[in-house]
Write a protein that binds this DNA or RNA. Structure first.
Length: 818
RNA sequence: GCCCGAAUGGCGAAACAGGUAGACGCAAGGGACUUAAAAUCCCUCGGGGGCAACCCCAUGCCGGUUCGAGUCCGGCUUCGGGCACCA
């Protein structure tokens, strides 16, 4: 052991040891409890950022901790290698996306290794490799045959100048980011996966995941948005039947107009005879697909001239075409009840349409008109001005209105989802090819297993945003697998969420060239702990849960849910905002490791905040973390110089000190269980502070065993967090026969924790007035008496009558006086 | 616009299950060591009053529940995440 702590040498020594011993390569071992710890794999953007460092340190800490507890731990890593930035980089630099991606992967792999992360590198996955995506293609052909994959028209953002589809990210203020042209909405045929068929199961499954943060489950529930309501059919003169869906059939009597989407057949029919409607439809083409854009835009509409008949009153209602009604939701048509819906209210105010209140709060006695004078009343209540439904509650009215509609043959009860089927096709080059061949005679034919994978040509030069595949006859010209005639391959590629939806399973069977998954997956799955950013709370995590069910129904996995426990980490901020190149507030992990070493980076990141919270970067605090490691090293040198005697402390001072150490140990063990790693580090710092005082004293047969035991505990508690320095100190001090990664996890000694007396806080009317020391076995009466006897307490009680005394054992006494 | 979170000293935070608010660290100030600096070590450190013992105020804002609220409930404000083609 050197005098000075040299992170460079320490980290090289530890990493060499793990590599030579193949410490993190694992196989299935039915004799030990397994633990599969997974961090969300990175997109290979070029370099790691602090968010990655945080994510992967968290995963590594959990993995190493479970390993020291004796579990068979799998911790794999890979790269989510398909995606838009590769095409952007290619366009800019003229480098093929494949080359750019593979270069980035090798650079980032090296960075991950230098962080000391205990990965089983044998299992590394890059999703852009045909060995990986062939199984995605294979599964897709099966889903197609089952009817779970289908083709339908769906809107995309279209730039008329570049003649390409734009991602939402590429639309800035409604214009193309490249050429500033106003983006249009265009319907094109797309591939979909029928996730809505699994909606009920995805919803129910959330209740089986106690290891997930409640907020994530709530977000997913709201995203699926299962709601019960009614489908109502209105008769429209000169058009036919117009169906709408509503969650508020109780407000049917308050409907004053109907609204349809601009793309609705009724609006198309109206446009043929009414120039104003044609004009409006034309204006609606200039619209984005992003929900946030649609929801915040100005709500506009136009009278189609059609008139609908109210199914229960026979009243005539105008039918508008409106930009806030979307063809993709429900029926593409709504009944508007301005009195009880904010959006309908605003629209009615703008176009001078009547507002008819029909629901008032239960105990409301005033004029219903006054209730909705300034805005809609959206709560439930009691029906008024609703003919036969007057006096019913909203809940009762929903049932009775539906019954009335059914009797009239004009409607029915229905469940509606907010969730839409998953559009998995992208009009892009750098993605997994969709394994479908279009034949004029045979239609859409899935590529036979023997012809898989459909390889993506990697030798392309990207010029503009358009998919390079559509311009490659050598790719798309192919014989039809059914009839042998000339056919054309699908040139769209898969959404990259496809690859990230099943990678967790493939790590288990990474080298199987004959099957997607095998028996090894049954051993490791489900993932015991999944860790990643909160920004993935809905899309990625919902798609992965869906895919797991698809895999299960294909007989490939046995579990219903892929991730038993989920940890959503907060973002890494600097000066209060997210680190980003555009803000120029990034901190490169590389420089940090060069200056202080990986252990300092890991320690700072674990200490600065609990995992779920955002983490504020601080260069000064990083230096502080480094100082702690230097102190730990110096302490280790003292311990190494003391004789390794194993006698129990006889002196009371030393047994008290040992009690304090075991108290901190108990706290640290509890905080590991809670994943409060910041307070684990705090407890370790306190232990080091105590041990340093002992180390400052001369060697003694009574103090040295406490010093040695305490240091051994601190090293093991810190080993998952700062694995390099603890590895070298463990060996240097000679604390065990094997490496620290295989050392037994420490346990608190109950004997050391036992106390003869306890300190209680005494409050008078909830204000802290004194502290008393009582024997550990003192009863309530004795505690009460002693508290009242205390002079500071007596002063505040002052002969006033004691109304009540609250005694919380081991904590406090509260004397309530009047 | 809709859904989900968060807010505690100069700063990052702690407070297990409603029970001493500010552990642990950073910064700052003072001191020791040194020819000097760096490094290291020691002391002070939420605000106000008091010589002191001690007292008052304080967990974004307004209310409520409770013997007792940073923690639970209702209403706001500000900031952040997501909104289906960024990953």
């Amino acid at each position: 052991m050197d005098d000075r702590y040299s992170p460079r040498e320490v980290e090289r020594a530890a990493q060499d040891f793990w590599k030579q011993a193949h410490s993190f390569e694992v196989t299935e071992d039915p004799g030990r409890p397994k633990f599969y710890c997974l961090s969300m794999f990175p997109y290979p953007s070029g370099r790691l950022h602090m968010g990655h460092v945080r994510n992967y340190t968290l995963g590594d800490v959990v993995s190493r901790w479970r390993r020291m507890q004796g579990m068979n731990v799998l911790q794999p890593i890979g790269f989510d290698a398909f995606g838009l930035p590769a095409e952007g980089a290619a366009e800019k630099n003229g480098v093929p996306p494949a080359r750019w991606t593979y270069d980035n992967i090798s650079y980032m792999r090296d960075q991950l290794e230098r962080l000391g992360l205990g990965y089983d590198w044998k299992r590394e996955i890059a999703t852009c490799r045909p060995e990986y995506y062939r199984w995605e293609q294979w599964l897709f052909t099966r889903l197609y045959r089952k009817g779970l994959a289908y083709r339908a028209a769906a809107p995309v953002n279209w730039c008329p100048t570049d003649a390409t589809v734009l991602a939402n990210e590429q639309v800035v203020d409604g214009r193309c980011w490249r050429c500033d042209t106003k983006v249009e909405r265009r319907e094109i045929p797309q591939w979909f996966l029928r996730i809505t068929a699994y909606a009920d199961e995805l919803l129910a499954g959330l209740d089986t995941l106690p290891g997930w943060p409640e907020q994530v489950a709530t977000m997913q529930r709201n995203w699926i948005g299962r709601s019960e309501g009614a489908e109502i059919r209105f008769t429209v003169a000169g058009y036919g039947s117009l169906a709408v869906f509503t969650t508020r059939p109780d407000t049917l009597m308050g409907a004053t107009y109907l609204a349809v989407a601009a793309e609705h057949p009724l609006a198309v029919a109206a446009a043929a005879v009414r120039p104003a409607v044609a004009q409006f439809r034309e204006e609606c083409r200039v619209m984005q697909t992003a929900e946030a854009a649609v929801e915040t835009m100005e709500k506009r509409g136009v009278d189609t001239g059609f008139r609908a008949t109210h199914p229960l009153t026979g009243q005539t209602l105008p039918v508008y075409a409106a930009n806030f009604v979307l063809m993709g939701y429900g029926e593409g048509a709504v009944m508007a009840v301005p009195a009880h819906d904010e959006r309908d209210f605003a629209f009615a105010a703008r176009y001078g349409l009547p507002v008819r209140p029909v629901v008032v709060p239960m105990d409301y006695a005033g004029d219903p008109r006054a209730l909705v004078a300034d805005g809609a009343y959206t709560g439930p209540g009691c029906l008024v001005d609703s003919g036969p439904f007057d006096g019913l509650s909203s809940a009762q009215a929903k049932v009775q209105v539906i019954a009335a509609l059914e009797a009239a043959g004009a409607g029915t009860r229905r469940v509606q989802l907010r969730l839409r089927d998953w559009g998995v096709a992208r009009q892009r080059y750098w993605g997994a090819p969709i394994p479908i061949i279009y034949c004029e005679r045979c239609g859409a034919v899935p590529v036979p297993d023997a012809d898989l994978p459909v390889r993506l040509p990697e030798d392309v030069v990207i010029t503009k945003g358009a998919s390079a595949l559509a311009g490659r006859p050598d790719f798309y010209e192919t014989p039809c697998p059914e009839c042998g005639g000339l056919a054309r391959r699908e040139t769209d590629t898969f959404d990259t969420f496809m690859e990230s939806s099943w990678y967790y399973a493939r790590y288990c069977s990474h080298d199987n060239g004959q099957a997607m998954l095998d028996a090894r997956a049954a051993y490791w799955l489900p993932v015991d702990q999944y860790i990643g950013g909160i920004e993935h709370a809905i899309l990625h995590l919902l798609y992965a849960r869906f895919f797991n069910k698809l895999l299960r129904d294909e007989g490939l996995v046995a579990n219903d849910e892929p991730f038993t426990r989920l940890l959503t980490q907060g973002m890494v901020l600097k000066e209060g905002s997210k680190m980003s190149k555009s803000k120029g507030n990034t901190v490169d992990p590389e420089g940090l490791i060069a200056e202080y070493g990986a252990d300092t980076a890991r320690l700072f990141i674990m200490f600065a905040a609990p995992p779920e919270q955002s983490l504020e970067w601080s260069d000064e605090a990083v230096a502080g973390a480094h100082r702690f490691l230097k102190r730990l090293w110096a302490l280790g040198r003292v311990v190494a110089g003391r004789p390794a005697v194993a006698t129990a402390p006889t002196d009371e001072r030393y047994s008290n000190l040992r009690g304090l150490l075991h108290g901190l140990l108990e706290q640290a063990l509890r905080d590991y269980e809670r994943y409060h790693f910041n307070t684990v580090v705090a407890a370790c710092m306190s232990m080091v502070n105590l041990l340093q005082k002992l180390a400052d004293e001369p060697a003694s047969p009574s103090g040295d065993p406490v010093l040695r035991e305490g240091f051994s505990i601190v090293l093991r508690l810190l080993a998952p967090i700062v694995p390099h320095i603890t590895h070298v100190l463990w060996q240097g001090v000679g604390l065990g026969t094997g490496p620290i990664i295989d050392a037994p996890w420490p346990v608190a000694d109950a004997k050391a924790l036992r106390r003869d007396t306890v300190t209680l806080v005494v409050q008078v009317n909830g204000k802290r007035r004194a502290e008393i020391v009582v024997t550990a076995d003192a009863d309530r009466a004795a505690i009460e008496a002693q508290a009242l006897r205390d002079p500071a307490v007596a002063k505040h009680v002052e002969g006033r009558p004691v109304a009540k005394v609250v005694v919380v054992p081991g904590r406090l006494v509260n004397i309530v006086v009047t």
